[in-house]
Amino acid sequence: MKALVSVKRVVDYNVRVQVKSDGSGVVTDGVKHSMNPFDEIAMEEAVRLKEKGKVTEIVAVTIGGAKNEETLRTALAFGADRAIHVKEEGEVQPLTAAKALAAVLKKEDAKLFICGKQAIDDDANQTGQMVAALLDIAQATFASKVEIEGDKAKVTREVDAGLETIEVDLPAVVTTDLRLNEPRYLKLPDIMKAKKKPIDATSFGDLGVTPGAGFKVTKTTPPPTRSKGVMVKTVDELVSALKGKGLL
């Protein structure tokens, strides 16, 4: 069984993100980027399924500019067998990404599509669901456990009330939650071996996708800074201070 895993290059989670002075977005130039952590979990899950013999081939796919090749190399070092690079230098919104990924999924005829539940840059949490809708296949989102049995997948999901276990027919889309697994450390020899694995380039044009802009980001602002607190000495002072603010 073939598994397709989408990976996105995002600003590293350790970076203190800064908003551009003109409010048109966040600073990405000269900032460390890495693979979206949820996509790492997706890669790890695919590799584990392959180790269990459930998956025979892992294909990693990304959409974006030339620099995204690094992310694909990371995916290959993780254990993907080959990679597909949908080259696009411009902005890609979730629906466009979903259309492209759906086209790749169809072309590859993969039975399982695993992706992070969201990317930590725009936190859209839409792409996986849209891929499933576009292809009219099952979706199992926020997975915390994935088991493959024959042509079905049993997926435990994290929902507000607790855990929910659902069974979906394959092909299906699985989006990963934080507690699905703990991604392994990349082995240095695997990084060297990843160089020899193939990366196929394709484009929206090849996939028959027209990039569209369903929405427009009008302004990006940093969160308000916390104003300085006031120290009070006694409970009475606290009560009167709270009353003064109309909180009591």
Partner: peptide, 18 residues
């Protein structure tokens, strides 16, 4: 190089987390 960077990143991650 890209390889060297990836090797360094992988080692750095192990250093930071382990």
């Amino acid at each position: 190089s890209e390889d060297q960077q990836m090797l360094q990143d992988a080692a750095r991650r192990f250093a930071d987390e382990a």
